[in-house]
Write a protein that binds this DNA or RNA. Sequence first.
DNA 1: CCAACTGTTTGCTTTTGACTATAACACTGC
DNA 2: GCAGTGTTATAGTCAAAAGCAAACAGTTGG
Lengths: 121, 121
Amino acid sequence: MLITVDPASPQPLADQVAASVRAALASGTAAPGDRLPSARNVAATLGINLHTVLRGYQQLRDEGLVELRRGRTAVITDAADQFRLRLAAAAEEFARAALHAGASEEEALAAVREALLAMRG
Amino acid sequence: MLITVDPASPQPLADQVAASVRAALASGTAAPGDRLPSARNVAATLGINLHTVLRGYQQLRDEGLVELRRGRTAVITDAADQFRLRLAAAAEEFARAALHAGASEEEALAAVREALLAMRG
DNA sequence: CCAACTGTTTGCTTTTGACTATAACACTGC
DNA sequence: GCAGTGTTATAGTCAAAAGCAAACAGTTGG
């Protein structure tokens, strides 16, 4: 369970921490029942503040992906299994819109590439 | 051609101005050849600063959607056809969902390919 | 021509939010 | 007990967004 962060990115560090965990879930690197490294540990490793890490963790809690209790490290919940499904649902919605607009597959994929680029850019 | 803004939103005001114009284009409310209201007018109406409106306009210029020249109000270009805008809007929405889900670019594109295939196949 | 508009540019201040820093607190597990 | 955990609180630092003000350089239309 590796958490990484890019200080040069315009994206807030706390968001990057949360995104990092979501990525681990989406790729299967982490599964329900697994525990996240302690916030103090992550903060020290990444050279960022404890609060920043905890804000990221609390985002995940608000999304129901992890369970937080003091005295214990964060635990990944069963609800986190649905991540692949959510991505598939979003892709299906976009595909429907793209087809409705008369776009070819290449055009649709190019549009997504561009949007991703502009977004994490 | 109505431009609105929500000061309570975390989205920058300039971005909201640009998004407002894009929405008008996508919905057909505005068409190529139409003119945007003057930046000073919009600023006064919305109670925001001239610079903020102009920054939004310049975003649109950078995207090739409007033509800006001093002495004249912004003109919507022919490039601003609805097809690309709708596709781009849908792609942007999906990209946001994919990033939020922690998907990599490859994973996101793969999900779209799969959805397109399942849909027209 | 000329007055009244337009976007452009410059320089600065104010505000807002993210991040940091430090510290105390309350709970868990060994 | 004790070391580790998340939680909460307060305050400081920093950069980006937005605001303010003034001058500049074009366009438009009477």
